[in-house]
Design a protein around this nucleic acid. Structure first.
Lengths: 346, 346
DNA sequence: ATGAAAGCGCTAACAT
DNA sequence: ATGTTAGCGCTTTCAT
């Protein structure tokens, strides 16, 4: 006798409907609502209908927090990252998000402002203030490395990229092999050696740099000094202009595609042609690499998949697997037009 | 057969220590432990010491889940977006995150897979399962528009970009004025008219398209049919090749920089020079626009600031302000090298 | 099949 | 300053 459906529009409250609201609206007990929600026990068709209708009408969504409390496990994971706008980062994050959602987890994101202790702690603290089932740390750079160190022992965690550690689960792309392969590719084209413009490394030396050196060593080629770039493509332009002044530079392997584009621009600004005068290759397979002219020969990293694998690893941790696992994949060379055999020496 | 030799630590309980365990170990009441944890009230030095010691000894960590449940005031906001990898989106998200963290809020991110009802509901459900203080919807596209409609009435919400609505708080960039200004710029350069390649609009017609038409109308210029592009720069290449076959096209205004780069590539592939034969301008000021050759004349949108403004608006809503507010800013033209006066007619 | 009661771990309101 | 009493929103006994 209480719930006529006439009061169809409740004065939109500033708070979400609770399970009690639904129970009252449907004229059943709270556990009954819970039962239709979870399917834990049978509910008569009639009551189930009324409950479903009430849920619909009140736009009710169960509170994951309350569920987490009673079930003992949160359903949100956090991604710790220093960057969200760079192609590799954002694509990895998307991969994590997709995989997490399929598994019923939400994703929170915490941006680390810098690699210094205070910035890192602030970001990690901010992230850990919410109930978290686990954390994925994007360890593409020093800030990520620092962040990983600041995550408490007891928190399930997986690192993405970076040096293989063995003490923590890790999803990686085999940059070393890829760097070696693309350097080898340039060498096989006939270049005497390959110059290298690095991106800010997450450790002493990035995998791609290590691979580059390995290929050079194997080929007994001269190992030129590394040129340090930043994440900003504009730094590549400067490097390109520098390189244009040197006759001995015929092939350049850049730490990522943005830098490679910058280098090509700098080279072109100074009148050198790519690939006729200088071959340039990148790393990542940025969406614009194909559009760029000459189109960029590069290494395709499957960041989406990297993110997915990271989440799978994290789920193992969350499910109680204490042993760190590793997941690696081999990036593939994408041959386009920015690399060619060197011109015969004058 | 009971215990391994390695059982050096206190009998590691299968469950983490609770506040009750700490209270018991310290010989105080549960609220007292809570008080030293939160600092909500004074605790005598002696008891505080014992509590701290017990916490240390039991390796106790407060359950964020329980805290979240009891506090009621959520400290997380969610960002609903269909994209995380496109420059404008990811930069806006970063702006939101930074502003939110400064204010003590965490940021969850929910990706909308498509504009259809089911995808939208899934994303909104995923986001709303955790306690949320509010939601920011990135309404750059149809999926965002749909998502905004799926957010419950009672939830504080702000829309970013899109058509001005008045029924919801909204942070925007004045695309219409900007589109009009850059079209005007091309007209003033001497072009008879300006062709327009649009990006997928969030409504019938994007602000930049409206501005473009307005400028053309004001100048009594011919209004050519709109060419529809996608978010993929490669579609721009195709458009560019098409355009290259037409003698009447001397100026092209593209809906974003990636498309503009694609169009320039298509034009160049077909032997047309930019800006000598055709002027091309973009929208957004993508980081690579400056590196591109010829460097791209475009409209700089301050997405970071857009994100910040969105959060400020959301905080008003969260603080109880029921009235929708609007925050707008005017993007600025960045003059570079991809636009020039038309060649005198043959 | 259903409701009443208990309790997850914590903080807040109310006592003292 | 400290303990006692109530919940937060939900699931899970345990009766019926």
């Amino acid at each position: 006798m209480s719930s006529d459906l006439t009061d169809s529009q409740p004065p939109s409250p500033r708070r979400p409907a609770s399970i009690a609201d639904v129970a009252q609206a449907a004229g059943v007990s709270v556990p009954t609502v819970s039962r239709v929600l979870t399917g834990a026990a049978k509910v008569s068709a009639g009551r189930r209908e009324r409950v479903l209708a009430a849920i619909e009408q009140l736009d009710y969504r169960p509170s994951e927090t309350a569920r987490a409390l009673v079930r003992g496990r949160p359903t949100t994971i956090a991604v710790l990252t220093s960057e969200t706008t760079i192609f590799g980062y954002s694509t990895t994050i998307r991969g994590i998000e997709l995989a997490a959602r399929e598994a019923g987890f939400g994703v929170a994101i915490a941006v680390i402002d810098g690699a210094d202790g205070e910035s890192v702690d602030r970001a990690v603290d901010a992230a850990l203030r919410q109930p978290l089932a686990g954390v994925v740390v994007l360890k593409f750079d020093p800030a990520g490395v620092a962040a990983l160190g600041a995550v408490p022992e007891w928190m399930p965690v997986v690192a993405v990229s970076g040096e293989l550690d063995g003490r923590v689960s890790q999803a990686t792309l085999d940059e070393t092999s890829a760097g070696r392969a693309i350097t080898r590719y340039l060498l096989d084209l006939g270049h005497a050696t390959v110059h290298h413009v690095s991106v800010p490394p997450s450790r002493e030396e990035d995998g791609r740099t290590i691979g580059w050196r390995a290929a050079l060593t194997e080929a007994r080629a001269l190992i030129p000094p590394i040129i340090s770039g930043t994440w900003d493509a504009r730094s590549g332009v400067l490097v390109g202009r520098q390189l244009a002044t040197r006759d001995d530079v015929t092939a350049v392997f850049c730490g990522n595609d943005e830098i490679a584009m910058g280098v090509m621009t700098g080279l072109a600004d100074a009148g050198r042609r790519v690939p006729q005068d200088v071959s340039v290759v990148g790393f990542d397979d940025h969406p614009l690499s194909e559009i760029w002219r000459p189109s960029l020969t590069t290494v395709a990293q499957d960041f989406d998949d990297l993110g997915r694998r990271a989440f799978v690893l994290l789920q193992h941790q969350i499910d109680g697997d204490r042993d760190p696992r590793a997941s690696s994949a081999l990036p593939a060379i994408v041959t386009r037009s920015s690399a060619a055999p060197p011109r015969p020496a004058a």
